[in-house]
């Protein structure tokens, strides 16, 4: 047995895992009966169907006529980590450091995810975007966003 499509193989695995997890999770909830379906009824059914279809996708990975192996390709760690890191950082920092500090830092972090990163561009971009966002969201739309570091 040779995996002829990496993408399909991994998709199948993912689908089975997600479907299975939802179906197993659904067993914690009341099923009810068909006359009065409980909260577990619908997700259990959907989870099972998803897992079954996942098996079909998984098998198709072995029967595929592709010859190139349909590889998933390289994982771009740098953009992935920088961007997700920046988002999480923003979530952590906003309530503590406030918009004025966390916002430009986040922009520099996201900029570091690109392949053409230079400090000059990143800082310039951070400055422009911070001022712009301040004007649009805080001054213009009056969204409630903590501005300065929380002292307590």
């Amino acid at each position: 047995m040779k995996i002829k499509s990496q993408k399909d193989f991994l998709s199948g695995v993912l689908l089975i895992l997600v479907g299975g997890a939802f179906a197993i999770g659904a067993t914690n909830y009341n099923f009810g009966i068909a006359v009065r379906p409980g909260p577990g009824y619908f997700p259990f059914g959907l989870g099972i169907i998803l897992a079954l279809l996942g098996i079909v996708v998984l098998t198709s990975a072995f029967t595929s006529k592709r010859t190139d192996g349909d590889p998933i390709g390289k994982i771009p760690w740098r953009p992935l980590l920088c961007i997700v890191g920046a988002i999480v950082f923003f979530g952590l920092a906003l309530p503590r450091l406030g918009f004025v500090i966390s916002f430009p830092l986040m922009i520099i972090m996201t900029a570091a995810g690109g392949s053409e990163f230079t400090w000059k561009d990143a800082v310039l971009n951070a400055a422009i975007l911070t001022v712009m966002s301040y004007l649009i969201f805080i001054y213009g739309l009056q969204l409630t966003i903590p501005l300065w570091p929380a002292l307590s």
Binding site: I83, L94, D121, A126, S133
Partner: peptide, 23 residues
């Protein structure tokens, strides 16, 4: 693009946060 995508990201983040001011 290196100037554009940070803008996209930060606008999205503010949008998500301001849904109910919840990180």
């Amino acid at each position: 693009y290196r100037f554009l995508y940070p803008a996209i990201l930060v606008f999205c983040c503010i949008g998500v946060y301001s849904l109910n001011s919840n990180v």
